[in-house]
């Protein structure tokens, strides 16, 4: 087990380093000179040089990269003498737009994104798995056909369309939900909940559609397994046959996919956050891209990569715990 963890963790670090190299290459080498950008309109060549020196852009690429990675783990100091600013680890640099430390910007927005992800995940797991299970058990009935039709529409309707329609109907027309505004949970729980309800629903709808179809297919396959026949031949009541013998094997592979989807969402839901004006990592990413704020783009990219890679490790560990064929060696 320890050996397994060690292998996984070393893999994680390796992949994150690779992601660093790639994002660094893309944003700092291929895109236009950041110093010119920061400098703005009233710019002199001297000013540009000064900014370059301050950001370390006049150094060779390799040492730039090394100080970037060094900043991640140990922090770094920009400039020298009186003008020096220390950026504590993990240092992702400073935003070109607001000059705020990127790490701070990201961690400020993270709670919103986590809230969106967790709420949506609960909703889509419930709707997807339960819906898919009922569909599988009532295969070919009207319920099954109806549920699969809804799932298909969930897959085919674009996120933002559904979001706008939902907002129009629930807030503007029916006035069931108040107009969204940023409120903390402690300040006004109801407003907080109402705020998040629509983003949750929008995100969950698309995912639930995938999970419902997946669950249905897996349960149907599992019900055809020989061991389900054995369970019936033992005289087990059918609810036990389904619960014990069909559900666990059918749902175990879904945990894998869930882990990856959830980890992906922690990197920010770009469209949903933007549409509902939620100040999360997704919104931050969208804003950074539109203003070409390279340090921020790089920061969120690394963060998303970290979540996906870490999610992968968690998924592997979970799978090992759930499937005895992986957990227990054959004798």
């Amino acid at each position: 087990m320890l050996r397994f963890l060690l292998a996984r963790l070393s893999g994680l670090i390796l992949i994150l380093l690779l992601v660093c190299v790639c994002t660094f290459a893309v944003f700092f080498v291929l895109s236009p000179d950041p110093a010119v950008q920061i400098c703005g309109k009233n710019c002199t060549p001297e000013l540009i040089d000064q900014i370059r020196a301050n950001l370390g852009l006049d150094e060779p690429l390799l040492s730039q990269f090394l100080s970037f990675v060094g900043g991640l783990f140990a922090g770094r100091t920009y400039g020298a003498g009186d003008a020096a600013t220390h950026c504590a680890a993990p240092c992702l640099g400073y935003s070109f737009q607001s000059s705020q430390p990127v790490w701070e910007m990201v961690t400020e927005r993270l709670p919103v994104t986590v809230t969106v992800a967790i709420g949506a995940a609960v909703l889509w797991l419930l709707a997807g798995v339960v819906g898919g299970l009922i569909s599988a058990l009532k295969q070919g009935t009207w319920w099954d056909r109806g549920a699969m039709l809804v799932a298909l529409s969930g897959l085919s309707i674009p996120n933002y369309v559904f979001a706008l329609v939902l907002q129009y109907v629930l807030v503007v027309q029916l006035e069931w939900l108040p107009f969204p505004q940023a409120v903390g949970f402690a300040a006004d729980p109801w407003q907080w909940f109402a705020n998040y309800l629509m983003p949750w629903t929008v995100l969950a709808f698309a995912y639930a559609s995938v999970y419902a179809r997946l669950t249905r297919a897996n349960v149907i396959d599992t019900l055809a397994e020989n061991y389900v026949r054995t369970a019936r031949a033992k005289g087990l009541p059918s609810h036990l046959v389904v619960r014990r013998h069909a559900l666990r094997p059918a749902l175990t592979p879904i945990t894998t996919i869930f882990g990856m989807d959830f980890a992906g969402l922690l990197g920010g839901a770009l469209i949903t956050e933007s549409v509902f004006g939620l100040n999360g990592v997704g919104k931050l990413t969208a804003d950074a891209i539109s203003s070409n704020d390279q340090p921020v783009i790089m920061g969120v990219t690394l963060l998303a990569a970290f979540f996906v890679v870490a999610g992968n490790v968690v998924v592997d560990l979970t799978y090992t715990a759930l499937d005895p064929r992986v957990r227990v060696k054959s004798v």
């Binding site: 050996r3 397994f4 060690l6 292998a7 893999g11 992986v326 060696k329």
Partner: peptide, 8 residues
């Protein structure tokens, strides 16, 4: 090879 990649 047992699982665990290089360390297996």
């Amino acid at each position: 090879r047992d699982q665990g990649g290089l360390f297996g």
